[in-house]
């Protein structure tokens, strides 16, 4: 049974569709990549699951089942409680995700105390334990530090610790390494994968980088214009992507080991093909 199931999710901003009948599922303990170029709607799916969609976005149809519970059918209060207990986010930019004027410690523990009702001592213990688990030296000192005193890699480790703190069963990682150096990115990706395996968490990994997908994901969903183009395991995908757009995206991804492989832009014909697919899909829809 999948831990997260999204069924035919459609969303609009004003009259324009941004998600078109998106269906996907993440099994317990699985890592699924959500891949696409900017504007593909990949972050919107993560936000829809966590209930943090911008106000301008309206979900027009579909279901989101988290551990069997239909999130969109719930009252907002109940929804927040379910999401808070079972899901968490690793955000893209560790600097904007942490409050610059508050110490790191309370930013990890407050959620545990305020939303999940832990005692302050328990939350404190748990935070120290997790900072230790994500290899932060001197966790006591770091808990008292302000975000600006720490490096980008350290801040991202703190957010990973914070995401795992309440033992969520689903984590959504939204481009968690885009802002980091390659060497730091490697450490952080390895850490996320390690933590995910150790805790058996389901992970929905939003990224534009197929290189990253090949390192952390077991399956992936390729999006364009809010439409799912391909949904597959990584092995067949990297051996032989089935959708022409996926193949073009893979060919456009740079690969330093292969000097002859030129970076090939996604051909116009492929884009036109996808746009035709989107238009065909929109014609099938009942008028909104």
């Amino acid at each position: 049974m999948s831990f997260l199931t999204i069924e035919n999710l459609s969303a609009h901003v004003g009259p324009s569709p941004i998600l078109r009948d998106v269906s996907l599922s993440v099994e317990a303990g699985e890592v699924r990549g959500l891949v696409g170029e900017s504007g593909a709607g990949k972050s919107m799916i993560g936000k829809a699951v966590l209930g943090t969609l911008p106000l301008a976005v309206q979900v027009t149809s579909g279901r989101i089942l988290l551990d069997g519970e239909d999130l969109l059918a719930m009252r907002p209060r109940d929804r927040r409680r379910v999401i808070g207990a079972k899901a968490a986010l690793i955000p893209q930019d560790p600097l904007t995700a942490l409050n610059p004027s508050r110490r790191v410690g309370p930013q990890i523990t407050n959620r545990l105390v305020d939303i999940l009702g832990w005692t302050r001592q328990d939350a404190q213990m748990r935070a120290l334990e997790l900072l230790h688990e994500v290899s932060i030296p001197e966790p006591e000192r770091v808990m008292r530090a302000y975000p600006h005193e720490l490096s980008g890699g350290m801040r991202q480790r703190i957010l990973i610790a914070s995401a795992f703190a309440a033992e969520p069963r689903l984590i959504i990682a939204d481009e968690p390494t885009t802002a980091l150096d390659v060497t730091v990115q490697k450490q952080i990706l390895k850490l996320i994968r390690q933590m995910q395996q150790r805790h058996g968490t389901a992970l929905l990994f939003v990224t534009h980088d197929l290189g990253v997908v090949s390192k952390v994901c077991q399956s992936l969903t390729v999006l364009f214009g809010g439409l799912v183009l391909e949904d597959t395991r990584v092995e067949p995908f990297f051996a032989h992507p089935s959708h022409p757009y996926s193949a073009a995206l893979l060919a456009a991804t740079p690969k330093y080991t292969d000097p002859d492989a030129s970076l090939t832009p996604v051909p116009d014909a492929v884009i036109e093909g996808v746009q035709a697919e989107i238009a065909a899909h929109d014609r099938m829809q009942p008028h909104v």
Binding site: V182, D209, G211, V212, Y256
Partner: peptide, 16 residues
Amino acid sequence: RELLDAIPLPDLEQVW
């Protein structure tokens, strides 16, 4: 070498 090893290639054969 460290910089090169850290680049994630779109390739399942590269294992970290």
